[in-house]
């Protein structure tokens, strides 16, 4: 019994160390990269202030302004967090050191959990900074007075980010350098469809069908519900989280396929030379 417990503890410790390696790597790379600092402060602030001031200029009602500010805060949070997840392989690709991670006894879970934790720290910082500024500058409280609701919404934003970041990583392994464009463009496409600045009801039918396939659609509706906006769908949390876990499962299968493919066609070595 004691022996088994010791073994489990040792396995758990090993998992923690390997995950910590990727937190360590992403954290230091982000800390020393001026561009990464811009990602957290400069760009989110620019879009937040632009949208907020535009709302003031066109005299939007406080609730409509809130609708848009929730969108911009969610967008900025996801944008930063998903980049961190994608960076875990992009940094290796840019430094041509990809093969070293793939010849070590680690699993993809270590890479993605580690990088998502850094994403949560940076994305969380964006969320709280923008929420704070929203209250100060635009007199809109972006935090619902319920820990549970805020927690579930934030968690959903981070998991959505993980889905996009992992998708970018899958593309890195399948198409190589061309995939880096996806790190910045995939997320924008998602924002266009899932109703960041507008309810999905205004979208043409075929785009709305697409929006229904994106979990973020449901979480934005869920959060806005607490500000008096009538959602288009029911069972928002259930639908959203079920989709998230379904996509994460699909991605784990796709990632295995992508690694196999990268080892078959020599992509791993190509990206390390």
């Amino acid at each position: 019994m004691k022996q088994t417990l010791k073994m489990y503890l040792s396995v758990f410790q090993d998992e923690l160390i390997k995950t910590k390696a990727f937190i360590f790597k992403n954290w230091i790379m982000a800390k020393r990269n001026l561009f990464a600092i811009f990602e957290v402060i400069f760009w989110p602030l620019i879009s937040f202030l632009s949208v907020g001031l535009l709302s003031d200029f066109i005299n939007l009602s406080p609730s409509m302004k809130g609708f848009i500010l929730i969108g911009v805060i969610a967008m900025s949070t996801i944008q930063v967090c998903q980049l961190d997840v994608a960076y875990v392989l992009l940094y290796d690709m840019w430094s041509k050191a990809l093969k070293h991670s793939f010849v070590a006894p680690i699993g993809m879970r270590h890479l993605f959990i580690g990088s998502t934790i850094v994403g949560i720290i940076r994305g969380g910082a964006v969320f709280f900074i923008l929420s704070f500024l929203s209250k100060i500058i635009f007199k809109f409280d972006a935090l619902v007075p319920s820990f549970k609701v805020n927690f579930l919404f934030l968690l959903a934003l981070f998991l959505n980010s993980a889905i996009i970041g992992i998708l970018v990583s899958i593309l890195v392994l399948t198409v190589g350098y061309k995939a880096e464009v996806a790190a910045w463009s995939l997320v924008s496409l998602m924002f266009l469809v899932c109703g960041i600045y507008y309810p999905v009801s205004v979208l043409p039918d075929w785009i709305r069908n697409l929006a229904e396939l994106l979990p973020l659609t449901y979480f934005l509706e869920y959060y806005r519900k607490f500000y008096g906006f009538q959602p288009c769908y029911d069972n928002l949390l259930l639908k959203g989280y079920t989709m998230i876990f379904f996509y994460l499962f699909c991605e784990s299968v796709l990632m295995k396929w992508a690694i196999k493919k990268a080892k078959r066609n020599g992509m791993l070595i190509k990206l390390s030379e």
Binding site: I28, M29, S95, V103
Partner: peptide, 28 residues
């Protein structure tokens, strides 16, 4: 494995690079 054309994470110091890879092998 080690390659002649050494490539590692550019922003990490020598110690940090070794720290990172040591962690991948479970050293703590």
């Amino acid at each position: 494995i080690s390659s002649g054309h050494a490539n590692f994470l550019w922003s990490l110091t020598v110690k940090e690079n070794l720290d990172f890879y040591a962690m991948l092998y479970g050293l703590s």
